[in-house]
Simulated scan of single mutants.
Amino acid sequence: MDFKQIGKALRIDVFKILAYSNGSVWLLVLLPLVFAVVPGMMGKESVLYPMSGAVTGMLTFVSAMAGMSVFSYEDQTGSAKLNGLLPVSRRNQVVGRYAFALLVVVVAVVLQMICGMMMFRLRRMGAVAGLMTTVLVASPILAGIYLPIGYRFPATKAVGYAIILLFVIGGALVLVAFTVPDAVLNNVMDFVTSAKLGPIPWVAIIGILVAAVIFVLSCRLSMHIYERKEL
């Protein structure tokens, strides 16, 4: 790997997402903060928890789809064919895009921390840490699933497949929530929160490790696909 080439590929992807969003990227940054202000001012738990879940879901989905937005930009502008002319190898282009996806995840986690502190006002930092961990785990896993799809299929199909996959995953989670008895879910949650390595729950450590493994394997799969793809 050539880190200079990876850095160049990362900068190009940042430029592409800014050009593709046409300024709306700043709206996506501000929107979660707006969603966090009102519940934080009201201070009602009946509002806080649903809204905190909505903010977490928004940040997870938007950050996971960032890489797909770059594919959409390339498809609309026809710039994907120009990638072969870049002084960056295909492998380093892929690593650069995964570095870009990881950068967006870091931004999403920081935004989640700010939103959580605005909503819970330092009263429940454990809840804030849990929401941050959710984004840190779920977003790289989804990005790791989405990016190989983006390299394998045209952007329009890839985005469609990604949205369908999101609905399938969301539907499966809703199905589990409604079919599994509350007593079982409570026992699972009690185990998750009580099993800790120092102050950190085991589930957070395992989740981060699983996300890292999926992300790395996804990167290798995308390299395999892209190196054999005709531009």
Rank of each mutant, 00 (worst) to 15 (best):
Q112C: 08
L209W: 04
L102Y: 13
I206K: 00
M68S: 14
D182Q: 12
V137H: 05
A204D: 06
S21N: 09
Y226D: 05
V47E: 01
S139M: 02
A177W: 06
G43A: 01
E227Y: 01
V176A: 15
P39A: 10
V37T: 09
P154F: 15
R11Q: 10
G160M: 01
R121K: 14
E227H: 04
A19L: 09
A127T: 13
V34I: 14
I214V: 15
G23I: 04
G207D: 02
A177D: 12
M125T: 06
S218K: 02
V29A: 14
V38I: 15
I163G: 00
L136K: 02
P201F: 00
L31S: 12
I200W: 02
L103K: 06
P199M: 15
R91K: 15
L173P: 05
D190G: 04
A19R: 08
A195I: 02
S194E: 09
E227R: 03
K81R: 12
V184M: 14
V55K: 07
P50R: 02
I114G: 12
F61C: 06
V88K: 07
I149Q: 13
T133G: 15
R152F: 03
D13R: 05
K4Y: 08
V176W: 03
V37P: 04
L48Q: 09
V70E: 07
T193I: 12
T56F: 09
P148F: 02
Y73P: 03
T77Y: 08
I164N: 06
A19S: 10
N186H: 11
A66N: 11
D2Q: 06
V203W: 13
P87S: 03
P32H: 12
R123H: 07
V29F: 14
A211L: 00
L103A: 14
L85A: 14
Q112G: 10
L18G: 12
V29T: 10
